[in-house]
Simulated assay, not measured.
Amino acid sequence: MALVRCVGGIVHDAAGRLLMIRRGHDPGLGLWSLPGGRVEPGESDAQAIVREMREETGLVVRPGSLAGTVVRGRYEIHDYVCEVLGGRLRAGDDAADARWVDSVMFTTLELTDGLANTLRDWQRLPRG
């Protein structure tokens, strides 16, 4: 089985809160995760993350460094640290909800498998 290349965006606001979405479709329906999705044929990771972030959150971002890569089932997910350039936060496309999450709220959310440990290992948990 070939792995499906995906990207995710790690975005913190000035208060240290983390941008998260509640998944509106499988895999992970109803669970909270980072915004992102599949890299379409002919797209670079950077193009895919800009498109996915705009579709799922309404925000325009600039992708930065690669935070890390995880494999979840058949999905190989490359997560990038991103900076918000503009837009207005709203849930769209595959996201049932989108919000800035502080460290207290983060501990109350039902997260996709392994997300909390991965963000902790990468030192990318919410700081606010």
Rank of each mutant, 00 (worst) to 15 (best):
V11E: 03
G37W: 02
S65V: 12
R54V: 11
M53P: 04
M53K: 09
S33F: 12
G8W: 02
G28F: 09
G24D: 01
S65Q: 08
R51D: 10
V60F: 09
H78V: 13
R17H: 09
E43K: 07
L66C: 03
I49T: 03
I77D: 06
V81S: 08
A15N: 12
G36P: 08
S65F: 11
E43W: 01
G24Q: 01
G68Y: 02
D13W: 03
Y80R: 06
D26V: 14
R62D: 12
G68L: 03
R51I: 12
R17L: 06
H25K: 12
H78N: 14
L18F: 04
Y80E: 10
H25N: 12
R38H: 12
V50S: 09
G64Y: 02
M20T: 10
V39I: 15
E83W: 08
G68K: 05
Q47P: 05
V60R: 10
V61F: 04
G73H: 02
V11A: 01
I21T: 11
S44K: 05
E40F: 08
P63N: 01
G8I: 08
P41E: 10
G42Y: 03
G42D: 05
M53D: 05
A15H: 09
R38C: 15
H78A: 14
L34A: 07
L18C: 00
V39S: 13
I21V: 15
G24K: 00
G64C: 04
G68A: 07
R23W: 04
P41T: 08
I21W: 00
E40N: 14
P35L: 05
A48C: 08
W32N: 05
G9H: 01
A46Q: 12
D13K: 02
L34F: 00
I49Q: 03
L66H: 01
S65M: 12
I21N: 08
G24F: 04
A15I: 11
V50F: 06
A67S: 00
Y80M: 09
M20A: 14
E83T: 13
D13N: 10
G58K: 02
S33L: 13
S33E: 10
R51H: 07
I10V: 15
D45K: 13
G28D: 05
D45F: 15
V39E: 08
L29N: 11
G9Q: 05
D79G: 14
H25V: 15
G64K: 03
G30Q: 07
P63D: 01
E76I: 03
R62P: 08
D13V: 10
R74I: 06
C82W: 01
D26Q: 09
M53E: 11
S33D: 15
G37N: 03
E83L: 13
W32M: 07
V81N: 02
D45I: 13
R22N: 11
R72W: 08
M53T: 15
G58L: 00
L66G: 02
E40L: 11
A14P: 06
R51V: 14
T69P: 07
E83F: 05
R38K: 13
T57D: 04
G28T: 15
E76H: 07
L59R: 03
V60D: 13
G16V: 02
A15S: 12
R72D: 14
V11S: 04
G30V: 10
E40A: 15
